[in-house]
């Protein structure tokens, strides 16, 4: 008869609290709540836009409410964390060479941040009313 009695350790749902790597992973996953939450803010704006100028102005007024400002500030921090973690991971999915020539990972990352800066500039200029 076998004397084996393998011990299987339980995995509590708090497993991610034990290791800083896992805490950062959970934070990364949690950024999605704010990314998605902002999608809903935009949906609210779209619906106001369809209802007419009065509703649109009320929407803009709503955005300057302290609670909305607090949400936007927190969401901005989380969205930036999403951007940083996304740019850290996506280069791993891209081809690492063109023909025989390897592409340094630094360049791929730098290109991401360059494009990010360009997108930011365009959006902020548009929002400021520049054509």
């Amino acid at each position: 008869m076998s004397a084996r009695r393998p011990y299987i350790r339980p995995m509590p749902r708090t497993w991610w609290l034990r290791n800083p790597v896992f805490r950062r992973y959970m934070l990364r996953e949690a950024t999605a709540l704010f990314v998605g939450g902002y999608g809903l803010v935009l949906l609210w704006g779209l619906s106001a836009l369809r209802q007419g100028e009065g509703a649109w102005l009320a929407y803009l007024a709503g955005l300057s409410h302290p609670l909305a400002l607090a949400f936007h500030t927190l969401a901005l921090a989380m969205a930036l964390y999403h951007t940083v973690t996304w740019f850290a991971l996506t280069p791993k999915l891209m081809p690492s060479r063109i023909g025989n020539r390897p592409i340094p990972a630094r360049w791929v990352k730098a290109a991401h941040y360059g494009l990010f800066a360009l997108c930011s500039l365009v959006i902020l200029l548009l929002a400021a009313g520049v054509h």
């Binding site: 902002y38 969205a79 930011s120």
Partner: peptide, 9 residues
């Protein structure tokens, strides 16, 4: 979201 959400916010 990585490229556009921060500036949109």
């Amino acid at each position: 979201a990585a490229f556009l959400t921060p500036p949109l916010l």
